[in-house]
């Protein structure tokens, strides 16, 4: 299963990066979303999953052997990362819409600056 996870990280990150290098902002936007999927999974791999482990939800009260649980810390960090990447993506979406309103274009390439504007 670790192989599957690594493979999924590979395809998500590759696809995300490829889209990120496109010139069309819409594709760049999709790229950021796909890339963040891949990165979240990558971070999750740091939880140290293997067969027979349990999610970090304690079985019962009191001191007991905690070596059966996966690492909860990456999960907590990914959880906030998911929410924040939603916020940032929304911002990008609106930025794109506004940019389109102003320039009628979704190209991520600036005009070379003229002498007067530099």
């Amino acid at each position: 299963m670790a192989f599957l996870a690594s493979f999924v990280v590979f395809v998500f990150v590759s696809a995300g990066l490829y889209l990120l290098m496109k010139r069309n902002l819409f594709e760049v936007l999709l790229g950021t979303i796909v890339l963040s999927h891949g990165v979240h999974l990558f971070l999750l791999s740091m939880s140290g999953w293997r067969a027979g482990t349990l999610p970090p939800i304690l079985l019962h009260d009191g001191p007991h052997d905690v070596s059966v649980y996966v690492d909860p810390l990456p999960q907590a960090l990914i959880l906030t990362a998911i929410v924040i990447s939603f916020g940032v993506t929304s911002f990008l979406v609106v930025l794109m819409m506004r940019g389109y309103e102003e320039t009628e274009s979704l190209e991520a390439t600036e005009e070379p600056r003229g002498e007067g504007e530099a």
Binding site: V13, T53, S67, L73
Partner: peptide
């Protein structure tokens, strides 16, 4: 170049992620 870069980036993270799974668990020995 773009395709190669994207694949290389993905591969690097995939290798890292694989070794992440090999890490010991927090409660481990």
């Amino acid at each position: 170049l773009r395709v190669a870069l994207a694949l290389a980036g993905g591969a690097v993270l995939a290798v890292l992620s694989h070794s992440g799974f090999a890490r010991d668990l927090p409660g481990g020995p």
